[in-house]
């Protein structure tokens, strides 16, 4: 508990740093002493605050979504970006851009969620059908499925001259998060909290269908609920900031190594660490090459792929 409070403080500190890093000058002292001019307050309320809130909600949500994905697929490598979820949500987003570009963000998110739900269900269906000899096959199947979906997206984006628009919102870039554009992330927040309420159910489901049935859990229902959470969280993040790869892989695995998988215990840590990691990646992205920004998603991509490789290699070593 004490440790958790400490971690909470650290994350809070990161959030505060995130509030005050940026091209235009906003300082803490100015805000509180009342010296802040109107422009400064504007920047703070319209851009900085939404951005930091979005980072926290997206990070926490994606980390929890990754955990749920790992429980449902019963595989350590599964997460929205290795299960076809992210790519399906992006395809949904493209469809919206093509057919009804003026839909409110909320509706865009719902369409993207529906696509994500279909894609992730397809992934789980394939897993059920294919006899799996190695756990590494699971993310491979997910990546291949994601690749196929992504190719479709690119094809249509190219045909309809939407490549640039696509690029802009698939890069996990929080610089475009403004007031009025990030609020769907609160849905991700509600779902994250709901997952915590259902934590024991997810743990039991993660023990496998037979154990779950033996303990009287309605496995199908938990599976369906989990899929909805994963899809909607992913879609709301994709719609607001773009793709945040690997966060659902790194955080749940690290927490699992240290504390195990009893989710009632670990989910708060997972959510908090997810938020902290995304905050830090965003701050790094904003400072390494200032005044230009590297999207948080790209920073995560680098860290995440290294982590993923490391996980694979360590498996190899243990198996050898």
């Amino acid at each position: 508990m004490k440790l958790f409070i400490l971690a909470l403080m650290v994350t809070l500190a990161a959030a505060i740093v995130s509030l005050f890093v940026g091209v235009s000058d906003v300082s803490l002292s100015a805000l509180f002493s009342g010296e802040a001019d109107e422009k400064m307050l504007m920047v703070f309320a319209v851009s900085r605050l939404p951005r930091t809130i979005a980072l926290v909600l997206a990070g926490a949500g994606m980390a929890v979504a990754g955990t749920i994905m790992q429980m449902l697929a019963r595989n350590r490598f599964a997460e929205p970006s290795t299960a076809g979820t992210v790519e399906s949500a992006s395809l949904g987003m493209l469809v919206v851009l093509l057919l009804a570009p003026d839909l409110p963000v909320m509706m865009k998110m719902l369409v993207a969620s529906t696509f994500a739900l279909a894609g992730t269900s397809l992934f789980l269906l394939i897993l059920q059908r294919v006899p799996l000899r190695s756990p590494i096959l699971v993310p491979l199947i997910g990546l291949m499925l994601g690749g196929v979906i992504s190719a479709c997206t690119t094809f249509f984006a190219y045909r309809f001259d939407l490549m640039q628009a696509m690029g802009a919102w698939t890069s996990g870039d929080f610089s475009t998060v403004l007031q009025g554009r990030y609020e769907v992330l609160w849905i991700a927040f509600v779902l994250t909290v709901a997952s915590y309420v259902a934590a024991d159910r997810f743990t039991v489901a993660g023990m496998g269908q037979d154990f779950a049935t033996n303990l009287g859990l309605h496995y199908g229902r938990v599976l369906a609920f989990g899929l909805v959470v994963v899809s909607m969280v992913t879609a709301s993040v994709v719609v607001t900031a773009g793709i945040l790869p690997f966060i659902g892989l790194i955080v749940p695995n690290l927490v699992s190594i240290v504390m195990g998988d009893k989710l009632r215990h670990t989910l708060p840590w997972i959510a908090l660490s997810g938020a902290a990691l995304v905050l830090v990646c965003d701050i790094v992205g904003r400072t390494v090459n200032a005044p230009f920004e590297v999207p948080a998603g790209s920073v995560l991509g680098v860290i995440g792929s290294l982590f993923f490789l490391n996980m694979l290699l360590r498996r190899r070593l243990r198996a050898a």
């Binding site: 023990m207 154990f211 033996n214």
Partner: peptide, 28 residues
């Protein structure tokens, strides 16, 4: 029931696992 082969990918402690035997009564 306990089946013949049990692969568990979930990392639980022995005590937590055994505690889940009470899940049908206490829902966690």
């Amino acid at each position: 029931i306990l089946r013949q082969d049990n692969h568990m990918t979930t990392r639980l402690t022995v005590r937590d696992l055994v505690a889940f035997g009470r899940y049908p009564y206490n829902k966690g």
